[in-house]
Design a protein around this nucleic acid. Structure first.
Lengths: 229, 229
DNA sequence: ACGATACTTCGACCGTAACCGAAGCATGCC
DNA sequence: GGCATGCTTCGGTTACGGTCGAAGTATCGT
């Protein structure tokens, strides 16, 4: 029997609650230390250490030693994509964790998906870009138009720079809370950092959620209108 | 911490080798009985039964009782897509199972991915359709052109029927062996059954691989040429 | 009705791995 | 050097889940 690649191995890696929580925490895009990840997983540092070693051996994580800290990140964006995929699937099945905590709404509104914007705001942004004709949506795929390129130039994003990278410019990424696509790829990343740079929004300490300032939110909503229909 | 959907739960479901093997077997698209799945997983029927119950509770599988048999299938194509996703990821990391058995080449050449054609032949078919202008590839997405629609009509596939279904017509699906896209969606399914109907190819008993007859292969290669460049 | 087949449930066993306390390295700071 | 901090390794405990034999339930064939 035994056909094809070994999905059990990575399934098992993701299948432990502590590890899953640590991976989820790393979806925030920031590099985290072993101690921070231990807190995220709800376990002691010793236990976290062995988990992290396993995850690194399985090539889901990579670590960078810096002074007496060890910073862990997801190995690459393929890992991030895989995790968001699984999250989308899990959310679709109603496999949510029952924790109606106060953070949940903020998370649904705007959060980081590895390195780009997700949640209600992420979906709205993509919708608006498509409606404006800045991005062509064909089937599941996305492509930046000439019109879109110049529009982005005005916001302060040089698409030429992004094009030179090996990473695809536009990707669609399934949003687990909205169950619709939002914008990933190097352009998605550039847009999010643009918002940070402008002071429209900021990351939160221990969470994936993104907080918009009142003024930032106003600007964002104006820039990405959604046509009432 | 605990943010977002519970990925650990489904990770754990996929993370057991026996369950992973059973799920992989079901990627062949056929409904299988508990006994067949036990063999696929390399375990006894008792053990398989408990595993299957778990998988069903987790909504990865659905069963249909028929006489004294119970036929299991993947719950829906979202499950198939998820599994192929993970396979692609695992293959990319070199997490292959070391089993250089004789079946491997056949599997790489042509196999079933839930309900459509994958492997070398699957990738070739999509490449050829795109080269011909039958399908537009924009970014990651696929869209059938008018030209493609009439071409399919000639082969004996009525696209109108497919369009009425809720399921998307064209999807791209990452091929774990070729690491490139092949055609999924209802059109992918229709094409594969078309090949079966014509007698060009047939399923194999205990495997996902698809065997083309000499004549069928000739026709297939003629229909989907790949331009030497 | 009886036996055979397909599958599930029960009970018991066992192994793995998750877990933490304590000790061991490594690095930084004074 | 001496001490604090960050992390890993070791040792030992514990518990969960995977496993199968045996028994129980359902369905088919004759």
């Amino acid at each position: 029997m035994k056909e094809g690649p070994d999905i059990a191995q990575i399934g098992a890696l993701i299948g432990d609650p502590a590890r899953a929580n640590m991976l989820t925490a790393l979806m925030g895009g920031k590099a985290l230390t072993a101690t921070e990840l231990a807190a995220a997983g709800g376990i002691t540092v010793q236990t976290a250490s062995t988990h992290l070693a396993r995850l690194e051996a399985g090539q889901l994580l990579s670590q960078r030693k810096q002074g007496r800290h060890r910073y862990f990140t997801l190995a690459d964006d393929a890992v991030g994509k895989l995790l968001e995929n699984i999250m989308g699937f899990a959310a679709g099945r109603g496999h949510l964790r029952h924790q109606p905590g106060p953070k949940e709404p903020a998370l649904r509104k705007a959060r980081i998906c590895y390195d780009h914007l997700a949640g209600d705001f992420g979906v709205r942004m993509l919708d608006s870009l498509v409606a404006k004709g800045a991005i062509d949506a064909v089937g599941e795929g996305l492509a930046l138009t000439g019109k879109g390129e110049s529009a982005l130039q005005c916001i302060g994003i040089d698409v030429g720079d992004l094009k030179s990278s090996r990473r695809p410019l536009c990707r669609s990424c399934l949003d687990w809370s909205e169950r619709r696509a939002h914008l990933a790829g190097s352009l998605g990343k550039a847009l999010l950092s643009n918002f940070f740079d402008k002071g429209w929004a900021r990351r939160t300490a221990g969470s994936r959620s993104v907080i918009f300032s009142p003024e930032g939110e106003r600007q964002f909503l104006a820039l990405f209108p959604v046509d009432a229909n």
